Amino acid sequence: MTATAPITQDLITIPRKLPEDGLINLVGLTRNQLRDVLIAAGTPEKQAKMRVGQIWQWIYQKGVRDFDAMTNLAKDYRVMLAGNFEITLPEVVTRQLSEDGTRKYLVRISGGHEVEVVYIPEESRGTLCISSQVGCTLTCSFCHTGTQKLVRNLTAGEIIGQVMLVRDDLGEWPEPGRNPKDETRLLSNIVLMGMGEPLYNFENVRDAMKIAMDPEGISLSRRRITLSTSGVVPEIFRTAEEIGCLLAVSFHATTDEVRDRLVPINKRWNIAELLEALRTYPEVSNSERITFEYVMLKDVNDSDDDARRLVQLIKGIPAKINLIPFNEWPGAPYQRSSNNRIRAFADIIYKAGYASPIRTPRGEDIMAACGQLKSATERARKSKKQIDAEAGLS
């Protein structure tokens, strides 16, 4: 498979501030972009690389937001920084805590729009589910987020800002004088499984994840970052080459007829085209395997025949299959498969040689579970009849 031109959409993207518009936010700038704005503000070119490294560590390794606290920089240089730049994160509007420890944040970004972010603590790790768009363009019929219209892409700063503000809340920035590697990692994994389709916002997602992986900053391994796509085939190769993180695919069906209804992007790139792209991913990205996400919908995609077809479809692809009990939401046109049916489905996959963990729903009491995210201000109340019609059930 060869790289293709990036997918474009008719989206409104908020540009980074130009100098004449006010202070430039440094959060989300790549190292090269940071170098360019520092030089434009008067930093001598010979010093620029060093200054980038110093400022980068203060922002992403130590979590510092005040230029005056950057004590290895000369005082007059700090004054210059404060006069030209800012270090600003999205605003936390509300924070909800589930009975199981899951935290859901409603986060306000530029323009007054809001997205949701979820932190899931587990015994051996802490996973942060972040958003890449305001709303979603894919209209997957089982997904609550998909009933919200797409507003715009998030910037790289708004994406990595979600990681930083949760680290604030967890108190995870290293204590002064301590090596960050000595700190306990409460936020150890990132999954791009929140609002939006990450591969329809590729450049901003890539730049944000490069910041997350940078060894002089937040320093997360690429194997601790998972990008979930519904199947934007032309961008899968770019993801392998330019990000190299783990890949998850919202699969959810074993025939084009059913997947067309559940995941409408299948009408553009069908199952065969998607699988062809996925077969090259592990080798190009040096990833161990691909995760196939499969939401269990009663009498829709949960039969023994579906399980057997799934095994045949992914044959030859290093993979695991995450079975996701459907997380119901008000007006949802589907029901969750029974526990016995899910276990029977999982058993067929397991006996075929694939790991088939059944995801434990987390944060259901605060609508923070998979497929339930939907920001309050953008929430459009739809009747069950409307939702059924859009899902092709009426």
Rank of each mutant, 00 (worst) to 15 (best):
Q54A: 12
D76H: 10
Y105V: 02
L89P: 05
A74H: 13
D68Q: 13
V92H: 05
G83D: 12
I59K: 04
Y105I: 00
R95V: 09
K75L: 11
P90Q: 01
G111C: 00
M70Q: 05
Y77L: 08
T94H: 04
F67E: 06
L81A: 00
G63N: 03
V52L: 07
S98E: 07
D100M: 09
L73V: 06
L97K: 14
R51I: 08
Q57S: 15
E99G: 15
D66K: 09
D76M: 12
K75Q: 11
R108M: 08
P90W: 07
G53V: 06
V107L: 09
V107F: 04
W56C: 08
Q57E: 15
D100T: 12
W56I: 03
V92L: 07
A82I: 01
K75N: 06
H113Y: 15
E99T: 15
L73M: 10
V92I: 15
Y105A: 01
E114L: 07
M70V: 10
I109Y: 11
G112Q: 03
E116M: 02
Y77A: 11
Q61F: 08
R51Y: 14
V107I: 04
G101D: 05
G111E: 06
T102K: 08
P90G: 09
L106V: 07
M70E: 05
M70I: 04
I87S: 04
K75P: 01
V92M: 12
G83L: 06
T94G: 08
R65E: 04
Y60I: 00
D68T: 10
M80D: 04
M70S: 03
